[in-house]
Design a protein around this nucleic acid. Sequence first.
DNA 1: AGACTTATTGCGAACGGTTGTCAATAAGCC
DNA 2: GGCTTATTGACAACCGTTCGCAATAAGTCT
Lengths: 128, 128
Amino acid sequence: MKRNTWQREAVTTELNAINGFVSAQALFARMRDAGSTISLATVYRALTDLVGEKAADSLLSPEGENLYRACASDGHHHHLICRSCGATAEINAEPVESWAQQVAAAHGFTQAQHVVDVFGLCADCSLT
Amino acid sequence: MKRNTWQREAVTTELNAINGFVSAQALFARMRDAGSTISLATVYRALTDLVGEKAADSLLSPEGENLYRACASDGHHHHLICRSCGATAEINAEPVESWAQQVAAAHGFTQAQHVVDVFGLCADCSLT
DNA sequence: AGACTTATTGCGAACGGTTGTCAATAAGCC
DNA sequence: GGCTTATTGACAACCGTTCGCAATAAGTCT
Ligand SMILES: [Zn+2]
Ligand SMILES: [Zn+2]
Ligand SMILES: [Zn+2]
Ligand SMILES: [Zn+2]
């Protein structure tokens, strides 16, 4: 049976307090800096669980690092992420959804999944 | 000045002989199995160079591994990749290009780049 | 061709993110 | 309170990739 620990609670809370995507290590650092004694391995485990129960989204950064975010939308959606500050907007991409399905079907592919992310500089970070 | 070595030549040749995306390690294994004495680090370096001079495309697999391919199209394009055998089709995604630009602009983002890949099972691998 | 310069190689160590191991801890239940 | 066992924390192991450096060899000059 799944147990409720302050560690899981703390990870959930911290993730909710951040607006953009964060790495497991960054989240761990923030918690440690705030005085938490949680371990890195536990942060990884909690994040993996959250993604598993669809309470968090994850994506691979261009550098190959896994990033996490507590998302507002429940259903399938994509993200517009600021490369500088990590600020994230959830975006609905219906045209892309149908396009992806069509292009896969047209080539005889089945069980198609797609990776669609837009990275850029948000309005604030664009000012420099 | 850039020098021409049989190692770089060999990597280019081997990459051209493969139709889909391959990892650096897989390419290295193929070359070794074929009798080459090239080193893994050199394969990495050659692939990085090829990508730099736009003679090869690279993408991050869902597992976070870098994959490489000698692509036919010169311009910007995307890929439909078989998760099982790596077979790849180059796809033109004009609707996605404009969509990505629009959604970025609509949120005040600048210097937008996008990651768009479709993974699935090719016709052959779907039969199993 | 031979000598020289220096880009490139190969090897092994190092790195960064992530996962596994396992004894110690503590959550939920009686 | 005591029992069971999921969960934790510390550390080792892992995997893909990069780095450091001495040895090699490509291109250049004579
Ligand atoms: Zn989201
Ligand atoms: Zn989608
Ligand atoms: Zn296939
Ligand atoms: Zn594109």
